[in-house]
Design a protein around this nucleic acid. Structure first.
Lengths: 332, 332
DNA sequence: AACATATGTGTAATCGGTTACACATAATTT
DNA sequence: AAATTATGTGTAACCGATTACACATATGTT
């Protein structure tokens, strides 16, 4: 494979000039440029990334840490991040951390030693100190799905509270009178926020009682079990807001199992906006515009890498109500 | 960050000795080793991967090319590949190609220039020549989901034909008398094979007619439409084999929409074994053991990278019938 | 005792780029 | 016309590892 020295020899200029041309830095005359272009063409020369990284510190590689790519939320994030990275000439290393602190640390270590140009972290367990320590080593970081207000950290989060309110209200709008909630894990802040949204709306309703809230672990099975519990205590409920789409799908299964028709007897809404067109009826949800979350995270990170202006704060993303069949009203 | 020279200085030996120790190559005395270990510990030294790659040619990085991580088949592959790579100290670069030949070529180019140690390619469009040309540049490649018999290429493929037969027979075993098929794209060989399996079993049955075969594009929507067509022509069918799980899910939606009960009136089976616990009833499938496909692909690739013995041929993987509720027989 | 082999170590070149610095010439200012 | 400033280029050090080669000493073999 041709090297920069081969090019410089063929073009009759020094390697410095070639390098300057390649990086569009410093002065290069028209003649020199012409000769270099011709030489590159002739030799089919491509700069060696490794050497470039060693000398220049840039690897054009970005680490993407997610809890588990098997969770349908993350492929879309990964896809968006990858598309965007690719557009700017970056490549993405995928890391599954299982929300395991040790795995997370190991991966951060690996990524640092691979000298990635930046890291996107989506994690429930990450601590601000870890992010700050990366930033001190001048490694740009963008955090997803967890907010660190008060710290100089770029993080993206959906407006989960508003989303919770939106979901809760939508059920009432569709005619529900007694609305249960399947909450997610309480140690996950976005999950808590969604539940708080529900409580804000119904916490003081006459019909409200704490046993209208059941807890799941964000999985289909978790939603299934939580729904069975909920229905046993409140067979008269006519609406359910599940804190994520997977639990909503589990709840739907449970309701079908119980012979309860959705949306006629009970209306159901989830949260996330993952692609779940395989269920029937399709479930209404509060959509996070997942793709654009991933895309924005990558755009922010690349800005940081390039040293462009970017305020280090929490960027809140709006959420959208997506009406599907599971909350269709009687007259619709 | 500490370099190998810092370590060599502190340990009172040459960099060559340190390097020999690090790579467990050549001779290193006990005393030298002790001093080196102590120095490494004290300096918290970690070898710089980039420099190592430049000098030694190994990047400990593997490229994983998949059509689209949004297709639920691939997250599991990616997860398995990543877990396995991680176990051996490799890192995975994720590439989405959309089965677009140009994108594929670009990515191969990028990966080659990043000097990845090997590539796993899952693609419908890849040609043997491309793989061979990579191998000529001494880049190990493992191909998934496409077989190149006759070429010295390591590829993994499920026994799709057998799987097709298995699915077809299972429906009969469960009491079906007129069994339709939703085939996948004919240009995808694994898809064709599944259909051939069905034809082998029923092509000569008295009730068989070509219009019992409908075509979809491996998507939920495709399966939905194909099912509607099929049912219109044959409202008396009592079994359907869809060539993948997503189309099976689409078919299930269509049947529910039509008011046909599954499994009572029509039994349904898919193919792939993706995690689809969110549908109800859960759909029987011919499982490919996706995780172990991804795991094996990575294991094979690492073997190739390490120069271990491995026959370059098609490795066929067995498939399993997974009975779920969608094919439950009357008496069950 | 003479020779061969095994063990252990260091020097310096190398991988393929980037870039600080020195230097030359051309274009502008005063 | 002299002094700046802008433009253009090359030399050589450097990034942080690996490794060929030369050399020294210890051990084993006839």
């Amino acid at each position: 494979m041709a090297t920069i020295r081969d090019v410089s020899k063929l073009a009759g200029v020094s390697v410095a000039t070639v390098s300057r041309y390649l990086n569009q830095s410093g002065y290069v005359s028209k003649e020199a440029e012409g000769a270099i272009v011709a030489a590159i063409e002739k030799l089919n020369y491509k700069p060696n990334n490794i050497a470039r990284s060693l000398a220049g510190k840039k690897t054009a590689t970005i680490g993407l840490m997610v809890p588990d790519i098997l969770n349908p939320f993350f492929p879309e994030i990964a896809r968006a991040a990858e598309d965007t990275a690719n557009k700017y000439g970056y490549t993405v290393i995928l890391c599954n951390t299982d929300n395991n602190i040790q795995k997370e640390k190991n991966y951060i270590d690996t990524l640092v030693h691979k000298q990635v140009d930046g890291i996107i972290i989506s994690s429930y367990t990450i601590e601000p100190d870890q992010v700050l320590s990366l930033q001190n080593r001048s490694i740009p970081v963008v955090v997803m799905d967890k907010a660190f207000p008060g710290h100089p950290i770029v993080s993206l989060a959906s407006d989960n509270r508003k989303g919770g309110r939106l979901a809760a209200k939508h059920l009432a709008d569709q005619g529900c009178r007694k609305i249960g909630h399947i909450a997610g894990p309480t140690h996950i802040s976005s999950s808590r926020e969604r539940t708080l949204g529900y409580e804000e709306v119904y916490g003081k309703a006459e019909w409200f009682t704490p046993s209208l809230m059941s807890y799941g672990d964000f999985s289909v099975t978790g939603g299934y079990k939580a729904m069975l519990e909920l229905y046993e205590k409140h067979p008269d409920l006519d609406g359910v807001f599940a804190a994520n789409d997977l639990m909503a799908a589990g709840a739907l299964k449970a309701l079908k199992r119980l012979g309860v028709s959705v949306p006629d007897e009970v209306k159901l809404i989830g949260f996330d906006g993952i692609r779940m067109d395989m269920v029937y009826p399709e479930i209404s949800t509060v959509s996070q515009q997942i793709y654009s979350l991933g895309e924005s995270a990558m755009n922010f990170l690349i800005k940081l890498i390039k040293g462009e202006e970017l305020e280090k704060k929490v960027y809140e993303f709006d959420v959208d109500l997506m009406e599907k069949d599971s909350t269709k009203g009687a007259g619709q």
